[in-house]
Simulated assay, not measured.
Amino acid sequence: MAVNARALNGGWGALVVVSACLALGACKDDGAGSELGPTTESTAAEAPETGGDGDGDGDGDGDGDGDEIVGLELMTALGGLWTGPATMTPLGVFDPMHMDLRAADGHVLFSRVDLDAENSLRFMFSIEAIAGQDRLVYRNGGYFLGQLRDTRTILQDHTPLDPAGVSSWRFCAIDGGCDYVDARWEFQSPSELVLDVSVKGQQHVLWIADRVEARDLPDPFPVDATAQGSGDAPFPPMPTLEVQVSWQDPLADPADVWVLLSVQDCPLADFCDYARSLRTTAEAGATSATLTIDQVHAGGYKGNAILDRDQNLQATLFPGTGDAVSLPNQAVTIAASGTSMAALVTLVEL
Rank of each mutant, 00 (worst) to 15 (best):
L101Q: 10
T333N: 13
G56K: 06
S111D: 07
G201E: 04
G300Q: 11
T339Q: 10
A269I: 10
V296E: 00
T39P: 01
F271Q: 14
A14I: 02
E186R: 07
A26S: 15
T159E: 13
C272T: 08
A214R: 09
A286R: 01
G62Y: 02
T226Q: 15
D256R: 09
D157T: 12
V332A: 05
E118P: 00
L278V: 08
S167P: 00
L109Y: 06
A173T: 02
Q264C: 05
M124R: 14
L8M: 13
M97H: 13
Q202R: 14
A289S: 13
A209I: 03
L155K: 00
V108E: 05
L195P: 03
I174C: 13
S34H: 14
P160I: 06
V243F: 06
D256A: 11
G54M: 03
G146Y: 10
R112I: 11
V348C: 07
A14T: 07
Q314R: 14
M1Q: 10
Q147I: 12
D294W: 09
A269P: 12
D216H: 08
Q330Y: 06
L78Q: 03
L261R: 01
P85N: 06
P267H: 05
L109R: 00
P328L: 04
H98R: 11
Q188E: 14
M75A: 03
G60K: 04
L78P: 01
L22N: 15
D249T: 15
E46A: 10
D114L: 06
G64W: 08
I293V: 15
D196C: 02
L327I: 08
T333Q: 13
A14L: 02
D59F: 08
L36F: 14
W12D: 14
C21S: 11
A209G: 02
P239K: 02
D162W: 07
L24P: 03
G37K: 11
D210I: 02
G320A: 09
E41C: 02
A286T: 05
Q244S: 13
A23F: 01
W258N: 12
C272Q: 06
D210C: 06
E73Q: 15
F235T: 11
